[in-house]
């Protein structure tokens, strides 16, 4: 099981920062506890500013085929937005970010681990359920699960021809992150303050 919690209002507001946004809610998955009420209240506040181009609420956006079908109907609203704000676990955000590769896709939630069955997710995307989600600093590619060393502050010197030093079949996660940030014009994210993971988060849930 896992819990998704809304990031702090200040964090989300600073991400949105007057931009036009498209909102995606992922609800209905039995393995995830989703903060439906809090999300709905907060989204009302966001909508009051008149900057929301559209909202969809669906389930299993972690399934790429399912997610594409749902998003296709809303492409004009998505195109009109500067930022896609996803209220889901980390897998959902990564799936959307991969599909909308030219868009800035941000996580509005943190995912925290709970004991028990973790659900069925595609192998390409994995969520470490760290408690503090880093996807907004990395263009929607998870540095915890896409980097063999789970580095938070950029690539190590170990990649050869774009492949990880641990596994020649694995792409360097941080090279992927760099390319994605370059594509969405967010290389400034690499200048964010030094990140140090907080392993205490589990106890605080």
């Amino acid at each position: 099981m896992l819990i998704t919690q809304l990031k702090s209002k200040e964090t989300i507001t600073s991400l949105v920062n007057g931009k036009k946004i498209f909102i995606i809610n992922c609800q209905g998955c039995k393995e995830v506890h989703f903060p439906e009420k809090e999300a709905a209240e907060f989204q009302k506040e966001l909508a009051a500013d008149g900057k929301v181009t559209g909202t969809i609420t669906t389930d299993y956006i972690c399934n790429p085929e399912n997610m594409k079908l749902r998003l296709e109907k809303h492409m004009s609203e998505i195109k009109a937005a500067d930022l896609v704000l996803v209220f889901s676990c980390g897998v959902g955000v990564q799936t959307i970010a991969e599909y909308l590769e030219d868009k800035t896709v941000c996580a509005a939630c943190d995912s925290c681990r709970l004991p028990g069955f973790q659900g069925v997710t595609p192998l390409e995307y994995d969520c470490g359920q760290c408690g503090e989600c880093y996807l907004n600093l990395t263009g929607g590619i998870c540095p915890i699960t896409a980097c063999s060393k789970s580095l938070l502050n950029g690539q190590c010197g170990g990649a050869k021809n774009g492949k990880c030093e641990v596994d020649p079949n694995m792409e360097c996660g941080w090279e992927r992150i760099y390319r994605r940030l370059e594509k969405i014009g967010r290389l400034d994210a690499l200048k964010s303050p030094v990140q140090i993971r907080n392993y205490a988060t589990d106890d605080e849930v």
Binding site: G154, Q155, C172, Y178, L190, K191, V194
Partner: peptide
């Protein structure tokens, strides 16, 4: 990936 290396150097 020299640009990525430079970004890390800056960090």
């Amino acid at each position: 990936s020299v640009d990525s290396q430079l970004a890390k150097m800056e960090r």
